[in-house]
Write a protein that binds this DNA or RNA. Structure first.
Lengths: 335, 335
DNA sequence: ATGCTCAATGGCATCGTTTTCATACAGTTG
DNA sequence: CAACTGTATGAAAACGATGCCATTGAGCAT
């Protein structure tokens, strides 16, 4: 293992100049003659020297890092958002610190347990659905805060219009001629409850507009919840001919129940999800896309904008898009 | 926005002690009376002070951060590995820096472009399938390197026995009475090529052991490749009665083709994947689990061990496990 | 009382940068 | 030739922690 990584002093010695000059060259600021600049550059290359963010950050007060807080890392969605964030931050020469909150959440003062303060220039939360109290706790860190997946007045946020997305989906089903359109939603989940509410509202609004009665079943979030909820619906005397679920994961559970019960999709029941899960295409599931990667990109851009003080707009609404596949079709009443 | 984050000096002043004492308390080292310790602690809490890793790292030479390098962030697999790493590192009070290499890979000297040097205490690569030259480049950073998803003699690695896993899967199909067992593999993928090779070898070995002819189709990695490959197999005069794919993603593509062609699974063809993708259960896909989260955990533990100098074992082989679901069954010849 | 030990605490140099200020030197001008 | 530019360069003081060494004072044996 190498003894000690080279310091700026080593570069200075090798190039025969002072520390200040090396610093100027490394930061690319003017005020160094081309000859010297060249000499310093090649000295640095020779030692394969890179500036210690630790040390420079100490002086500048900037760490060159952005902390990203996610509830969990496993679900598909977060990987996509992180991918967007990561790519965008790299171009601004910022590193990405990832904190998975997970089960820690709920413990009083989990925001404290993260070593954010002084260790990042900004904080991005991903679908954390923060309470205003939690927001304030994070404000306390003293760096800009950018939220995704929730809309809070006066704060920098990136979000989608869940209400509109769900309404769009519902209208798609209604346009196909369905009148008995049920909704499977989640309840009591550990996060996303705000988005849950909005999606349900969107469905309700669309149904009301069409003058049709709403029909919603709430279950535990996740695949299992979808399975159970669909079971309930099938047990009805007159089951629905179309079902919209709050997210693709629940749709997959519902799909499983349908397959096991021998109910043809979309023959007897049209099924729709929400999210455009990476495997929705495998199931040919009609769904609503929310472009998670683009959300990440937007959040990172917003963050960079704020850090550069040229903060333009603080609210970014991402579009949702209907993805039509094979799991929905016009209504065909069963005999 | 607050003026300036509190420094250790502020805490010291508030608690009426010296800098050294605060430092001792924050690091939890002995040599401070309980009374003072308590006083300092509450002063720190009041200011919601946390130590600056930047500053402490400057002195100790440790950054308190571990860099994780992944090819991409979107695929399900990486999220799971990261989840394992993240949780484990947190307990050791280490932060996780994530670098997505993505398209950068392949550019000469991509290892240089990452600001690793001096900015992390260790580097973990996830399924990067590094060449020995790339390894050396990373050694150059001067911090311990831990590889996952590949086995390199003399280096700290975490990996699974792909060969054995594929052989296990193949034998499962053979035990069900299948004799025409095909393999769908990937070719020319941007990464994972080593693991690809091993899985194919495992399949071949199992077939050879059973005295049966191998039958493999290589296609582009990913779902689309699976679709196409399965199309090819179905076009044969005597299609196989069982198909093993290199990974679940390809199995999903294959599954789609089968569904569209009206071939019942597992009625006419038994289908197996490899990875235990989070949605394999939705499709009731029999597969081989490689516990990505556990891989992450193991890699992080290995890293921590090395950092604490008590590095025990440098090679960790993770077990694979057959996950039996509904997509495989005993052979039933079609009429 | 005196000397000794040991735990608790404070002082200060140090880490590797940035930043401000001072200096040297070349070129221009009156 | 003196005074004034302005541009390169260097010296030194931060930044916020750690870690070594010195100091203090209490407890105890002599």
């Amino acid at each position: 293992m190498s003894n000690r990584p080279p310091s700026m002093r080593d570069v200075a010695r090798l190039a025969g100049v002072s520390l200040s000059t090396v610093s100027r060259v490394m930061r690319g600021v003017p005020g160094v003659s081309p000859v010297v600049r060249e000499r310093v550059q090649s000295a640095a290359d020779e030692l394969s020297y890179v500036v210690s963010r630790n040390a420079s950050g100490l002086v500048t007060g900037r760490t060159g890092r952005v902390a990203v807080i996610v509830p969990f890392l496993q679900p598909w969605f977060f990987g996509s958002v992180l991918a967007g964030i990561s790519d965008t931050l790299r171009h601004a020469d910022l590193d990405m610190l990832v904190h998975q909150v997970g089960e820690l959440r709920g413990q009083r003062g989990w925001t404290r347990s993260l070593p954010l303060r002084r260790n990042s220039d900004a904080v991005i939360t991903v679908s954390m659905d923060l309470s205003s109290e939690e927001c304030e706790r994070l404000d306390d860190v003293g760096v800009p805060l950018v939220l995704t997946g929730q809309k809070v007045p006066g704060r920098a946020c990136v979000f989608i219009d869940d209400r509109q997305g769900a309404a769009k989906a519902t209208r798609h089903l209604l346009n196909l001629g369905h009148t008995r359109v049920a909704y499977i939603g989640s309840t009591g989940g550990p996060w996303l409850s705000l988005s849950s509410r909005h999606r349900l509202e969107g469905y309700r609004a669309a149904m009301a507009d069409a003058g049709l009665p709403e029909w919603s079943v709430l279950s535990s979030p996740g695949r299992r919840g979808g399975e159970l909820a669909m079971g309930e619906l099938l047990a009805e005397h007159h089951p629905p001919t179309a079902v919209l679920t709050e997210f693709d994961d629940m749709a997959m559970g519902a799909y499983r129940t349908l397959r096991r019960s021998g109910v043809p999709v979309p023959g007897a029941i049209s099924l729709m999800g929400f999210d455009n899960h990476e495997v929705a295409s495998v199931l040919d599931l009609t769904t609503v896309d929310q472009a998670p990667r683009a959300i990440g990109t937007a959040a990172a851009e917003l963050t960079i904008g704020i850090l550069n003080e040229d903060a333009p707009h603080r609210h970014v609404e991402m579009p949702t898009q209907l993805i039509l596949r094979q799991s929905t079709s016009t209504v065909r009443e069963r005999p």
